[in-house]
Amino acid sequence: MRVFPVYAPKLIVKHARIFLTGVIWVKDLGRLEFEKGRFLLPRKSLPKVKQAILELNELIEAQN
């Protein structure tokens, strides 16, 4: 598990694309899981977490 002390979308996306499957922890967002290079949306999450995951997945799609 990698810990990101700040929310840096480009760096987080780079990590997810390299490792494809895993878990990261982002300060103020908490634990985020990714599989096959995409972030998974938890069943229950705060609106800011949901927005961050959608933003990260959009960045991943834009890079493909």
Results as ranks from 00 to 15, higher is better:
residue 40 L to E: 04
residue 52 A to N: 02
residue 12 I to V: 04
residue 39 F to M: 04
residue 16 A to N: 00
residue 61 E to Y: 06
residue 14 K to Y: 08
residue 16 A to E: 01
residue 53 I to N: 00
residue 44 K to G: 06
residue 10 K to D: 11
residue 54 L to R: 13
residue 17 R to N: 09
residue 41 L to D: 07
residue 30 G to A: 04
residue 55 E to S: 06
residue 13 V to I: 08
residue 45 S to Y: 09
residue 32 L to V: 06
residue 54 L to A: 11
residue 7 Y to V: 00
residue 3 V to G: 08
residue 54 L to I: 08
residue 31 R to Y: 11
residue 28 D to N: 14
residue 30 G to M: 03
residue 44 K to N: 06
residue 2 R to G: 09
residue 53 I to D: 00
residue 16 A to C: 09
residue 50 K to R: 13
residue 55 E to N: 05
residue 38 R to C: 12
residue 22 G to V: 04
residue 15 H to R: 02
residue 44 K to E: 05
residue 46 L to N: 10
residue 63 Q to P: 06
residue 43 R to G: 08
residue 13 V to D: 00
residue 29 L to Y: 05
residue 16 A to T: 11
residue 24 I to H: 00
residue 57 N to P: 01
residue 51 Q to C: 11
residue 28 D to F: 11
residue 41 L to E: 08
residue 32 L to S: 03
residue 16 A to S: 05
residue 12 I to C: 01
residue 37 G to L: 06
residue 58 E to S: 11
residue 2 R to Y: 15
residue 37 G to A: 08
residue 30 G to F: 03
residue 55 E to C: 06
residue 36 K to W: 11
residue 40 L to D: 04
residue 54 L to K: 12
residue 7 Y to K: 00
residue 18 I to R: 11
residue 17 R to V: 11
residue 4 F to T: 01
residue 38 R to E: 10
residue 55 E to Q: 09
residue 3 V to K: 14
residue 32 L to Q: 00
residue 46 L to D: 07
residue 43 R to Q: 09
residue 37 G to K: 04
residue 35 E to N: 12
residue 50 K to G: 05
residue 3 V to H: 15
residue 64 N to V: 14
residue 52 A to C: 09
residue 22 G to S: 03
residue 43 R to H: 06
residue 35 E to A: 14
residue 28 D to E: 10
residue 9 P to N: 02
residue 45 S to K: 09
residue 57 N to H: 02
residue 4 F to K: 01
residue 26 V to D: 00
residue 42 P to Y: 08
residue 3 V to N: 14
residue 47 P to M: 10
residue 6 V to L: 06
residue 42 P to W: 06
residue 25 W to Q: 07
residue 6 V to M: 07
residue 58 E to R: 07
residue 55 E to I: 05
residue 12 I to S: 03
residue 45 S to E: 09
residue 15 H to S: 03
residue 53 I to M: 03
residue 24 I to C: 08
residue 60 I to T: 05
residue 57 N to T: 03
residue 17 R to Q: 13
residue 43 R to Y: 05
residue 40 L to M: 11
residue 24 I to A: 04
residue 1 M to H: 15
residue 33 E to H: 13
residue 31 R to A: 02
residue 46 L to H: 08
residue 18 I to A: 06
residue 61 E to R: 04
residue 23 V to E: 15
residue 18 I to G: 06
residue 2 R to Q: 15
residue 7 Y to L: 03
residue 51 Q to S: 09
residue 37 G to D: 03
residue 51 Q to P: 03
residue 26 V to Q: 01
residue 27 K to F: 13
residue 13 V to A: 14
residue 51 Q to V: 08
